[in-house]
């Protein structure tokens, strides 16, 4: 539960030391948008809202952007570019350095039974390694348990849509409607949308895959997501958007 400090910061500004949370046991954790200049300066690096969480003793800057920087542990939607002897080269953001996905990093994969993915196919993967000096690496399996946990190649009819990074984070929240203000998906599957049947896979790199038997449903869901993101719509406006789209695309 974050405090509601609406503090706007610009890069390089000094932060009032009284705002920095302290905790008896946990060390202070810095999230995205902040950097530490020893011995005790914490400086924002982007323009955004400074959020502090005194319970977990962490702070970060909340901001929206479109260029994904890989970070370890993120779940993303990647596209296979080509295959080499031991791994697939995947694109996680356009024009950025490609990531590597080992051939055997899938659930119960051996050299003979591994999934054969063609260039251009999509995978739902986790970033296993990301630091600024190396090309990022992906995996589709939990290395300790050996289970896929929903990761792996994307199959079925559907299409991928681009959204901003902030919107993707909101979609991936546990309670995206209450905490993230995104109700479109529930509405589309509920009464406002006429009970459309579809599934989605959202990646932190700003890509959302929408799958459904009917292309019309995919287009409606995709448009709803993109217009909510671009227009900065609130819950009521989202409801109106859903009703309008369903009526328009009859």
């Amino acid at each position: 539960m974050a405090t509601n400090e609406r503090l706007f910061v610009l890069p390089g500004e000094t932060i009032d030391p009284s705002l920095i949370p302290t905790h008896k046991k946990h060390p202070l954790r810095l999230g995205p948008g902040l950097r530490h200049i020893p011995p005790s300066d914490i400086v924002p690096t982007v323009a955004g809202q400074l959020i502090t969480n005194p319970l977990k003793n962490s702070m970060w800057v909340e901001y929206n952007s479109h260029r994904y920087i890989p970070s370890q542990g993120d779940i993303i939607l990647a596209q296979i570019l080509r295959s080499t002897t031991d791994f697939y080269l995947c694109s996680i953001a356009p024009y950025s350095a490609p990531a590597t996905l080992p051939h055997l990093a899938f659930e119960s994969a051996t050299k003979k039974t591994r999934p054969q993915l063609a260039p251009g196919s999509l995978v739902y993967a986790r970033v296993s390694l990301a630091n600024r000096h190396m090309d990022p690496e992906l995996e589709c399996v939990n290395p300790s348990t050996g289970k896929a946990d929903g990761l792996g190649p994307i199959t079925g009819n559907g299409c991928v849509f681009d959204v901003s990074l902030g919107f993707a984070r909101r979609l991936l929240m546990a309670r995206s409607r209450e905490d993230g203000g995104v109700g479109v998906l529930e509405m589309l599957g509920g009464e406002e949308g006429g009970g459309l049947a579809f599934e989605t896979a959202a990646g932190r790199n700003g890509k959302v895959w929408v799958g459904s038997e009917s292309p019309r449903t995919v287009v409606i869901v995709g448009r709803a997501l993109q217009e909510t993101d671009k227009g900065g719509l609130g819950i009521e406006e989202q409801r109106r958007l859903v009703k309008r789209l369903v009526k328009e695309m009859r």
Binding site: Q79, S91, G120, S121, L122, I154, C159, V218
Partner: peptide, 11 residues
């Protein structure tokens, strides 16, 4: 940047 197979088939 090439579109994915998914996108091609879907379009």
């Amino acid at each position: 940047v090439e579109p994915s197979l998914n996108e091609r088939q879907f379009v």
